[in-house]
Amino acid sequence: MFSDYSWADLGAIFAMQGFAGLTLFAVFVLMALGLAIIFGQMGVINLAHGEFMILGAYVTYLVSTFFAEYMPALFSLYFFVAMFLAFLASGALGLLVEWALIRHLYKRPLDTLLATWGLSLILQQTYRSVFGAREVGVSLPDWMMGSLPLTDLIEVPINGIFVMILAIGISTAVYVMLFRSNWGRQVRAINQNRDMASAVGINAEWTDRLTFGIGCGVAGVAGSAFTMIGSTGPTSGQLYIVDTFLIVVFGGTASILGTIASAFSISQAQSIMEFFLSGSMAKVLTLLVVVGILMLRPQGLFSMKLRK
């Protein structure tokens, strides 16, 4: 598939597609981060994680509509407000869901899959009833449009750079929280020995709930970023859950750097292959490679030795 292009062309194509894949990378990283925190802490997978992301996307859509309507002068700033509100909305829903559903299922991870799938159906139908079945899109503020010419062949989209910085910023924040803050110490203490942690006065119940809420809130921010690469519909989030989980395990469930590295390689592979193959075949090929590697190396590509 490469033979029709010269080396210079190929380099430019790779770079262009690579930059174009940055937004996808950001969405992947933020989604995977939320999922990884929850999976690492509680051993459960939230199959409604994509719907939490879409909630963030709808919030972003609402905020952008609101700004366009009532505060056009401040439109260039709406995205920051939207991100913040998306985090709050998805995080609040996460707290609620943890309280109503997840906390009853900690010892039954497989059942959690089914219950959260049920939740995702309910959320999808709610979105459909509230926002309609049609997909909605947002318009970006001017300063995020366009791109910076790097060479005469290669251009860098500004929104891609913006969300990438955002994603890395949030990842760093989460990293700091997990490994430097008091909350992080509690999370890790509970992770190692729940009874002991409770015995020394850590409130395991609230730590779990907060963890779940933060994971979902980060998914909401991913939804904000998502509005830049796709239009938002009730079922837009569904397909992302598989990719996201694959990213998490591909990166090795314990490390944030691994998650970032695997999100990067998967989004880049997909974006670059999309130039040469049809979009669907690029996706098939990426997923096949990932699943193939995971079958041979279940502990992931970037992880340390797995303890039995």
Binding site: P109, L113, V242, F245, L246, S280, L287, V291, L294, P298
Partner: peptide
């Protein structure tokens, strides 16, 4: 591939889900 490496639980469930996704996209494509 999975069971001899003692992969099970949630992990196995999601891998099978991924395979369902792959096959669907492949058939449609």
């Amino acid at each position: 591939a999975m069971f001899t490496r003692r992969v099970g639980g949630v992990y196995f469930a999601i891998i099978t889900q991924a395979i369902a996704a792959i096959l669907t996209i492949l058939i449609i494509g």
